[in-house]
Nucleic acid binder design. Structure first.
Lengths: 290, 290
DNA sequence: ACCAATGCATGAGAAGAAATCATCTATTGA
DNA sequence: TCAATAGATGATTTCTTCTCATGCATTGGT
């Protein structure tokens, strides 16, 4: 067959030169001197006993065989590069799907901390209200869902939430603990078979007879944003309100009154729980909840 | 993306190790020491920051990512090897199609000489009675056909043939120039619109009134073989008989009587006549006919 | 239960590629 | 005509890649 398998490095030099139509540009791409490229291509031509380039004074152009070889080499080298970056991604990119609210109010503020703890892992967030089938969609490494408890998929669970009212600091101060004339902002919770988390339940728990205005949102973080804007008291969980309170954007209203909520579940295919990047994330997540 | 593009050599070491499931075997395949393979794979794992092999005491096996990477690398390296050998083949393998007779009686005896003159060109023969469409079947570089004259495809033509009778030496001697009791072996020539090349034509040309036996074959070289076996006189061309005469297997019978035949045409796609291997062959062919 | 054999890991140093440097040639275009 | 460009070539240097010597853990045979 072939006298001697030419070195892969020459092939790459040829590939670059063929693509760019110039030894000099190829040299730049490969960060070597044009001389090196020239040597490589000459060596390759000798090894294959084939002329690949027609040299003209200030330019080179491919022969017909050169063109054919370059085409196939290009696709092979692309395949290699793709494979490498895919490997890198599957090991160092962690894709988490969760609810828009958890992403916006809990995860996003903490991504910086995660990256500091694990600089080699790139965290990608996908949010959506439709639950994802982990077995089906292999791009997703982890799903963080509210109140789900899918036995075999459950990797860990965050502490149960407590639901309370939160408002912009000046509004909470102005209300002085009473709901008269206030607006309660809440989400349309749709957890089948679970204690209702509603403004009514909160009012009942507080044994209040005030009749505040009510406004409903589809997204829990919209509730929060609305409360921050001073438009009412948000009925949200301590988990999601935590950062906003810490940053002084919200203040608890009657923190003594809290409804019991569910907890967030972290779901993962059982055989993948031990994958490095996934294990790291779960470990970090648990530590971040204390 | 990637910290540092790993060297292609490491990738090839990994590919081999992954395919063979053993560093040692990979080392053998690559003709290096197992140490080199070990170093390469460790380097690769560090460059990618990924574990590719799980080491056990006397064996290694791929991790899941290792397996995926190896799959794609294998296909890429196969592509490269294929591309290289294709290049080599298209430059150094010459495929000629011709008639079984011309192949057997003229070309095959001269292949050795061609190879001696052009050691880097490997001559492949394809024979068949059905003419080949060169534009359609790109595997074929040249077609040598009898009496065809397809204008644009005609690369060169061999000298016109002269058709005569040839027999085994002792039979020719025994006949003493007369056809009485002899058998004439001939081919069913089917050249439309051409002077008939038949035993009858020969007898007419010789102005003989002998009535020899007649036997027909489909293949001209079968005629020759039959004559060599002493079963009659072959009505064949000087071109095809030449070698057999030179080797003393056949002797001309009444060499003064010869019918005019056609000539062999060498056909080639016009744009490919100047391809090195093709030009060499045509040049050699013309020189071989003198 | 022990010892030889196997397969891989590791570090240091040797061998061998591959890159560069300096120099040349042949154009091109200003 | 001369500076600038793109590439070729050969000698030299640099640095990758290989090997050697050695070590470790395990397996299988006696």
């Amino acid at each position: 067959m072939l006298r001697a398998m030419p070195s892969l490095i020459s092939l790459r030099a040829f590939d670059a030169a063929a693509r760019l139509g110039s030894f000099k540009d190829a040299a730049d791409e490969l960060s070597v001197s044009p001389t090196a490229v020239s040597h490589h291509i000459r060596g390759l031509e000798q090894a294959l006993d084939v002329q690949l380039f027609v040299r003209e004074t200030r330019a080179v152009h491919l022969t017909e065989t050169g063109r054919r070889l370059s085409e196939r080499l290009a696709s092979a080298f692309t395949e290699i590069a793709d494979a490498l970056s895919e490997v890198h991604a599957t090991e160092h990119e962690l894709t988490v799907t969760t609810t828009p609210a958890f992403a916006a109010l809990w995860l996003v503020p903490r991504m910086e901390a995660f990256h500091a703890a694990h600089p080699d892992i790139r965290l990608r967030l996908e949010t959506g209200t439709v639950p994802v089938d982990l077995a089906r969609d292999r791009r997703i490494d982890l799903a963080i869902r509210y109140g789900v408890d899918e036995g075999p998929l459950l990797a860990c669970a965050l502490p149960p939430e407590r639901i309370g009212l939160y408002g912009a600091p000046n509004m909470v101060a102005a209300l002085g603990g009473r709901l008269n004339g206030a607006t309660i902002l809440s989400t349309e919770w749709e957890q089948p078979g679970l204690p209702p988390i509603t403004p009514e339940a909160w009012i009942a728990a507080a044994s209040a007879d005030d009749k505040p205005e009510l406004r409903q949102f589809e997204q829990e973080h919209h509730v929060a944003q609305c409360a921050i804007a001073g438009q009412g008291l948000a009925l949200i969980s301590n988990l999601l309100a935590g950062d906003l309170v810490a940053r002084g954007l919200l203040t608890p209203f009657r923190p003594d009154i809290q409804l019991r909520g569910l907890s967030y579940s972290v779901l993962c295919l059982p055989e993948r729980v031990r994958v490095r990047k996934i294990a790291r994330f779960i470990c970090w997540l648990e530590a971040s909840c204390e």
